[in-house]
Design a protein around this nucleic acid. Sequence first.
DNA 1: CGCTACCGTCTTGGCGCCAAGATTGGCAAC
DNA 2: GTTGCCAATCTTGGCGCCAAGACGGTAGCG
Lengths: 230, 230
Amino acid sequence: MQALFTQGISAPALSGRRSIVAVAEALRRAITTGTYAPNERLVEEDLARSLGTNRAVVRGALAYLEHEQLVVREPNRGARVRAFSPAEAAEILETRAALEVLVVRRAAERFDIATARACTAIVAAMRARHAEHDLAAYTELNTQFHRAILACAEHGTVVRLLTLLHAQAVRYQYRTVLVPGRAARSLAEHEAILAALLAHDADAAESAMRAHLDSVIATVRTIAEPRHLG
Amino acid sequence: MQALFTQGISAPALSGRRSIVAVAEALRRAITTGTYAPNERLVEEDLARSLGTNRAVVRGALAYLEHEQLVVREPNRGARVRAFSPAEAAEILETRAALEVLVVRRAAERFDIATARACTAIVAAMRARHAEHDLAAYTELNTQFHRAILACAEHGTVVRLLTLLHAQAVRYQYRTVLVPGRAARSLAEHEAILAALLAHDADAAESAMRAHLDSVIATVRTIAEPRHLG
DNA sequence: CGCTACCGTCTTGGCGCCAAGATTGGCAAC
DNA sequence: GTTGCCAATCTTGGCGCCAAGACGGTAGCG
């Protein structure tokens, strides 16, 4: 009777983990995957019911996500899903660029065979999906590629920060790839990064990564600001 | 009667702000300023009493700070103050370097007269405190200098991330400056950064900042790992 | 007919209680 | 003398209730 009206979030995810963090992660997932739209109100009791928990936990999770900039909370007025403007997305990507450059340098130095194989496979798959115009799958592989490099760099601090930034800007990842010609350029850029990594050339990897993210930023900047709320 | 036994934290800070965030910030301050030592246990009820609030709020704040890596929480075992090893501190500083470079470039481009005056004054004060061997004041000015540059860059995303990183590594800031000869080198490095900024030379500012932080990282690496807990 | 003030409702903010798990100390057995 | 077990205690985990503030609709007044 309790978990029947699970509208919004399928509640299973929080098995075994600590509640506030678990609820926050479930909520983050729901937000980044679009279950909750930008500016949508997040009512504590509804969320508590959806997730099979109580309001105190939800409130903690909302504070948690506010800290991540994924929700905005106003005193006595509740929380809503944070909406990022293209300008903010560009700023986030700029920051991400600075960190990804650090990561890709480290990755180039310690690029092992397993990672090389994984990355090569991912880029091959990206090429295939691009040829088939399957942009959703392409975007997913894009994320996987960056994640593989990140894993190879073994840098906990940067992993954490990049995860934060990714959650904030992921919505724009789906939008940029829809810009005509963007997917083709993106593919070429990823191939350049991979080539540099395979050559263990940190400098080349850095400039390839920088070029890639500058290109993404430029694309985001072309996306028009959404209509002013009135 | 309620606020009398305020042992640990002086409770005034949380006036007017939302509770979980306010409590988390008070706690963060207490941790970074050393009121609570690394590995010290943080008992929810004690904190609630100290801060004049209830356990639910404290729990939220602890989750919040766990996300910031300032506390560690184990299921059913409570929270403790996170202890950072020198290796982790070096990693954090590496990350900070990547972001500070981004910031200092922007700052060099938009370095206005007010900021120039402020930074010049700060560096002058650093020189004076260094001459007087007042390392505590020197360290405080050091933080102020970086904060002034950060403010000038007007980059919300990076501000947030650098604030996080600063809170994590601040303990080491006090330790590095105690290394013989470190303060003098630090002063020279800051003067180089200031000179580059005054000249609006982004490239010079970047390399000066990079040199500065590399130097800090090298110093942190010389600090011995603390005794293994036994 | 339009504006304002009031009232009801909804949601957040704050708090305390009860149950479950972990830790520690004492006690007994080997 | 040492070791293992058990119980008391402490702390966390989870939950619901009550008060305060914001929002919206309606009625009354100008």
